[in-house]
Computed example of a mutant assay.
Amino acid sequence: MLSSFKNYKAYEDNQLGDKTEGHSMNIVNGANDKMIGTYTMVGQNEFCFCTSTILDDELKKTFKRDSVFRIIDPLNFMIEITRSLPRVQSVLFGNCLYVNEKIISTKIPKNLDIEELKDDKETDKISFQKMIQAAGPSLTRHRFFLKHTDYQPQSEYRMLWSTDRKVEDGLVIHCPEARQFCEEIK
């Protein structure tokens, strides 16, 4: 079962759910003391698979599970899942980053020229895409992995499959090829 950020926002259980999933404040600072801030939401086009990097009985109780599986080869596991999904454009994976506030601050080594960041069609507005390009890949990638420190005991590891469409619900997939890279833990 793959899920979605939308599903995580809807869970009433505050361990499974997170009302601020995918939200972040982003600040880009230029060498000339100019800065731009945005508030963004990501994850609308992603299928999600979240797991933990620790095997702990307390965590199993928290999530109301009587058994779990360990992924012994995460890369090949992700490759097989990717093969079974339609319209995948990219895959992101990694450990969640635990912070007190979901704020990403990036410094670019050059002067931040507001004129260069203006939208080509609406010249009175800043282009978010141009700002992201100026800030670099860390701003884009980190937004998918931010979690409040309240969730740190979960030690979450995420796999995200970006698609070319909105992902509203979860998706049950049949992928027996991925099972060879896992083992059941009772």
Rank of each mutant, 00 (worst) to 15 (best):
K64V: 11
H23D: 15
L59H: 06
I36F: 06
M41Y: 04
I36R: 00
M25L: 13
K61I: 08
N29V: 02
T51A: 12
D66S: 15
K61H: 14
D33W: 10
L75Y: 13
M35H: 09
F47Q: 04
T51Y: 08
T40S: 09
P74H: 05
T51L: 04
G43Q: 03
T53H: 02
H23N: 12
F49V: 08
I36K: 02
K61E: 15
L55I: 14
M41I: 13
L55R: 07
C48M: 07
S52I: 05
K61T: 13
T51H: 08
E46S: 07
I71E: 00
F49A: 00
V28T: 06
M41K: 12
K64P: 09
G30F: 02
K34C: 12
H23V: 07
R65Y: 10
V68P: 01
Y39V: 12
N26D: 14
N32A: 02
S24P: 04
H23F: 15
L55W: 12
T38Y: 07
I27Y: 13
F63R: 03
S52L: 00
D73E: 14
D33N: 15
M25R: 10
K34T: 11
T62S: 12
R70K: 14
N26R: 14
T53N: 11
S52V: 06
I72W: 04
N32P: 01
S24R: 05
K61Q: 15
F47M: 00
T62M: 14
D57Q: 15
T51R: 05
Y39A: 08
I71A: 02
T40P: 05
G30R: 06
I27C: 14
T51C: 12
E46R: 02
A31R: 12
C50Y: 00
R65I: 05
M41F: 09
T40R: 07
V42E: 01
F49L: 13
M25H: 09
E46I: 04
I54M: 11
R65E: 10
V28I: 11
N29Q: 04
S52Y: 00
C50S: 00
M35K: 13
T40L: 08
H23W: 10
S67G: 11
F63Y: 13
M41C: 10
L55C: 14
E58C: 11
V28G: 01
K64F: 13
D57P: 03
L59I: 13
I72Y: 06
V68W: 04
M25T: 13
E46L: 01
T38L: 01
S52H: 09
V42T: 03
T62L: 15
L59R: 06
T51F: 03
V42N: 02
S67M: 11
S67P: 00
K34G: 08
N29L: 03
F49I: 07
L55F: 13
Q44H: 06
K34P: 03
L55V: 07
K61V: 11
P74K: 01
T62K: 11
F69G: 07
G43S: 09
K61L: 14
